[in-house]
């Protein structure tokens, strides 16, 4: 959930509203915020599934160190979404191992 009004910080300076997609679904966020923050605000917890055990992973450090939050952004895998700014029209996909769900499923059928 977004914090509308904070007792110390007041209102947060947000950029323009932007539209992006997550696994093909339309989503909205604000320019300048991290992809991870926009997803978290929308209640999305899983960013990727691990390669071998297929376990879900989400935000952990939020400072670009742990790589738990990596996703496929505009076709590029392994993008650390916690330190990557959201931009209008981004195509974001949950990452399975190091690839898309489709590619992963094709291999692991």
């Amino acid at each position: 959930m977004r914090i509308a009004q904070h007792p110390i910080l007041g209102t947060y300076e947000k950029g323009q509203k932007v539209h992006f997609t997550l696994d093909g679904q339309d989503m909205v966020g604000y320019e300048g915020e991290s992809i991870a923050a926009a997803l978290h605000a929308a209640g999305v917890m899983t960013h990727r599934y691990t390669a071998k055990q297929h376990k879900p992973r989400g935000i952990f450090c939020a400072i670009g160190r742990c790589t738990d939050c990596v996703m496929i952004v505009d076709g590029q895998p392994n993008v650390r979404t916690c330190i990557t700014e959201l931009k209008e029209g981004m195509n974001i996909q949950t990452q399975y191992g190091v690839e898309t769900k489709e590619a992963w499923e094709a291999k692991n059928k």
């Binding site: 959930m1 914090i3 991290s34 978290h40 935000i59 939020a62 400072i63 916690c82």
Partner: peptide, 17 residues
């Protein structure tokens, strides 16, 4: 499960609980 620093980054920098 998140680090305390992540919690701070989300709420104090990004404005997300």
């Amino acid at each position: 499960v998140i680090g305390a620093g992540a919690a701070q980054a989300l709420m104090n920098l990004q404005g997300v609980q």
